[in-house]
Design a protein around this nucleic acid. Structure first.
Length: 421
DNA sequence: TCTGGGGTCCTAGGACCC
DNA sequence: TCTGGGGTCCTAGGACCC
């Protein structure tokens, strides 16, 4: 059996943890640069604020309805997430952390287990230990566990936040109820196509022939159909090791010069490489892109990107930054107002299983240099030690007008409690 | 004036091999 | 009138997820 544990309105709930007065009040959390709405409390959803809404279009509504607006505080969310995941890991070693706010747990076949009770225990423990409300869906496949979680959320009061699908009867009831657009793996592209053939629910999809499903949704769709029928076709994955690592940002103001972009691209590469070394990998290629404001006038737009492939894989930031800058040089065109840039590391190899080169140009000293940099930056704060090319002062501040304190990761931000007599 | 960031998997087609 | 058959690897683009 698989359990899907999903935090309720995760970012909004994280903010509420330290401001309990916001219980029952509308909350939204904004993306970097306070651009879009990326999380909403139930109360904010009820006000009709859509996911991804541009913040500037909703300022008046926020004010009028007294919506609490937060700039995204990822250090806080990441820390709360770790705490939740640690608790979940105590229930089973078979755990897949699927995203910052949800995880799949796998339980061995055992008919005497009371899954309803386990679900309730998980809920209570996480709520008591972290303050985070979660819902739990339990079923024989991951896709059905997703569906069960959906039901647990939709009927939170009746189900007490836990729903279990453990019989053919329950499965049928669930898939007949589940709308096609709420099926895990059916997105906005496939939905209209399937609807055109008269499909409305998850059940309808399970009744279609394999050939039809494959034609419409490829082999992923076939797996989906199996899963909805109760036959596991999607395994628990170990996604602690990434296959690609990206760092991309929209700038607070547009940049026009090569030097500004070079500083940004270098810093993004530094950040990505830190993550790469943390998972003990080297990479062989880096993708670099720059773009102007995509909402701007057609004539003022320019996008370009390039992949630089290295002669041998590396985990040295110094080496990779040189390649990233060379790529940037090739795609940079003066005369445009650039609003976004990013890098993606690709083609990973494990550090201790690397293909070495006979005529290598790699400087062995970089290994200890990187180790020293990571260690110092880890102990004394990000970017305490930088490459010279990064040093452009504070040109890269993000707009974060309503950032909450980093309550759990920064000593000076820890809350003070005044006890009354 | 202002519109996020980070991932995975699949397929088709090109380039190449014998 | 007519030009084989069987493979692999890589990439771009699409679709999906949170």
């Amino acid at each position: 059996m698989f359990a899907l544990v999903d935090c309720n309105n995760f970012y909004a709930s994280c903010e509420r943890l330290f401001q309990p007065a916001l219980e029952g009040k509308p909350i939204v959390v904004l993306s970097n640069n306070d651009g879009c709405v990326i999380a909403r409390s139930n109360e904010a959803k009820a006000l009709g604020i859509p996911m991804g809404a541009p913040a500037f279009q909703y300022q008046e509504l926020f004010k009028e309805k007294q919506v609490s607006v937060f700039s995204a505080n990822f250090p806080l969310y990441g820390d709360i997430s770790n705490r939740v995941m640690q608790i979940l890991a105590s229930y089973t070693p078979d755990i897949e952390i699927y995203s910052i706010d949800e995880a799949f747990l796998k339980f061995p076949d055992n008919h005497s287990v009371n899954y309803q009770e386990i679900g309730q225990r998980i809920r209570k423990q996480i709520l008591q230990w972290t303050g985070m409300p979660v819902c739990v869906g339990i079923a024989p496949t991951k896709t059905l566990a997703k569906a069960a979680n959906h039901i647990a959320k939709k009927f939170k009061e009746q189900r007490a936040g836990v729903h279990v699908i453990d019989s053919e009867e329950m499965r049928l009831k669930a898939v007949r109820w589940l709308k096609l657009e709420d099926v895990w793996g059916i997105g906005r592209r496939s939905l209209p196509r399937l609807q055109h053939y008269g499909l409305k629910t998850a059940y309808d999809l399970t009744q279609k022939e394999d050939a039809f499903v494959k034609k419409q949704l490829s082999v992923t769709g076939l797996r989906l159909k199996m899963e909805l029928l109760g036959i596991p076709a999607v395994l628990l994955e170990d996604n602690s090791i990434r296959q690609s690592i990206s760092v991309t940002r929209t700038f607070e103001h547009p940049y026009t010069t090569f030097e500004e972009l070079r500083e940004r691209v270098s810093t993004f590469t530094v950040m990505a490489m830190e993550k790469l070394r943390a998972q003990h990998h080297s990479c062989r290629s880096i993708y670099v892109f720059i773009r102007t404001n995509r909402f701007g006038d057609e004539s003022t737009q320019y996008n370009n990107q390039m992949v630089a492939i290295l002669p041998e894989s590396t985990n040295s930031t110094i080496v990779l930054v040189q390649h990233a800058i060379a790529a940037l040089q090739k795609i940079f065109k003066p005369g445009y107002r650039y609003s976004k840039a990013g890098v993606t590391l690709m083609q990973f190899e494990e550090d201790n299983a690397r293909q070495l080169q006979l005529f290598t140009t790699a400087d062995p000293r970089h290994i200890s240099l990187m180790r020293a940099m990571d260690s110092i930056n880890g102990n004394f704060g990000q970017q305490k030690i930088r490459l010279a090319v990064q040093d452009c002062g504070a040109v890269w501040k993000m707009k974060q007008a309503t950032l909450s304190p980093r309550y759990t990761t920064q000593l000076e931000d820890i809350i003070t409690i005044h006890a009354q007599e």
